[in-house]
Design a protein around this nucleic acid. Sequence first.
DNA 1: CCACAAAAGATTGTATACAATTTTTCTGAA
DNA 2: TTCAGAAAAATTGTATACAATCTTTTGTGG
Lengths: 239, 239
Amino acid sequence: MGASGPAVSTGKAQQGKDANIYEQVFDAILEQRLIPGTRLSEDKLGQLFGVSRTIVRTVLQRLAFEGVVEIQRHQGAIIARTTAEQARQVFAARKAVELEVVRNACRHISAVQLEHLHALVWEEQEARGQQDHGRALRLSGELHLYLAEYCGNEFLAGFLRSLVSRCSLIIAQYEAADRHSCPPTEHGAILEAIGAGDEALAVKLMAAHIDHIEAKIDVREKTAPPDLSAIFSKTNKEN
Amino acid sequence: MGASGPAVSTGKAQQGKDANIYEQVFDAILEQRLIPGTRLSEDKLGQLFGVSRTIVRTVLQRLAFEGVVEIQRHQGAIIARTTAEQARQVFAARKAVELEVVRNACRHISAVQLEHLHALVWEEQEARGQQDHGRALRLSGELHLYLAEYCGNEFLAGFLRSLVSRCSLIIAQYEAADRHSCPPTEHGAILEAIGAGDEALAVKLMAAHIDHIEAKIDVREKTAPPDLSAIFSKTNKEN
DNA sequence: CCACAAAAGATTGTATACAATTTTTCTGAA
DNA sequence: TTCAGAAAAATTGTATACAATCTTTTGTGG
């Protein structure tokens, strides 16, 4: 599988060019190449992708619905920033959803689907071995998303999609320097339990797994607020 | 509270005119004045509300993201139809989310918030007594939504919002002639349990409540013809 | 040099024009 | 009549023009 797969089924097929842009922006978020606070100018994006603002606007609105960008009237779109309290809520929501997902997966998942998930784990380890943290993080997210998709509830899967992408933003905003967001051995263990149909164990492992991710984030505000350095020295402005 | 409240906080304040149209369409869905399969022509809606297709398009895309309308390329938007399997998934998702909501509510809810919910139950009973089934259904939905909002997790609340609206569509599509979707005594009992802080009881009652709603739907397909302008005529001046 | 107001510039909000596609209507023949 | 196919109409997809608002720069007085 190539580096830039379709990132889980994002909806229907046969869509317009907005779908392409959406995928690219979404993937960039999942790989943390777009970090919270980044401004997404309609004109810039339009020129970048060779489309008019109409298309860009559609994409930005969709991303805003998903919660990964914030749009404020007359002030445009930025990659969403997450407060510490919101981060707590995201992990709580993930736990509620993913425990249900795991329960369903233990009953509904097929052998070939399980095989696919194992392949993702292997791919993720490979990326991590190559120090490609962005790709590893995206693959980790995709594992959770495919698991949800295979559990047989498209609504839970769709919701989890927005939670996982938001998690990427949270990690980008808060995580300490050492970045190993999802211990891959845990992924493997969860899949083992699901494959064995051991619902109780799978649920327990998934709960612990999410707790571990949450434990890694550091609630001190790492965002550069109106920088002190900016107050004392006129810093340059990018682009 | 008047008949046409803001229907739970739908997001940010200070929004454009699209917010108004969105509210009206969403309320019409919650009150089942818009039923599954109804075609939503961009031009018709635009003339109806006195805005250009640009605005209508924004609204339709948002509704599509929430899952209450379906958009197919070059074929426009219709109120979403739900398959029997999807309906099953919606109720499963609601159960997963609302049980978590109830657990949190038992710990986080305040006295004044609980008072508000009790008032909603009373209002719903009143509407039912006046044979205003549409309003009763909307109030029932708002009860569930406010409960989620008060539980202290905006992400779960937002997800539940789309599930509840989808439920209105499911009921409109499938429910038998006798329409009493949410036995109000059950609502009261759930609030009692939450007020008493009895988590186990509250969870049990909510689970049973959702099961009862699901049990009422009837998977036989029932079609219905649309009439667009009449639906919004009471709130809009121009034909 | 700083504070502050006004103008210039940049960005977003909305409407409209045109292109692409689908749906409907019309025509003719089996 | 009924069917196929083409023209006509209607509807959606996209780009662009202009209006509204915000941001930055500039100019002036203290």
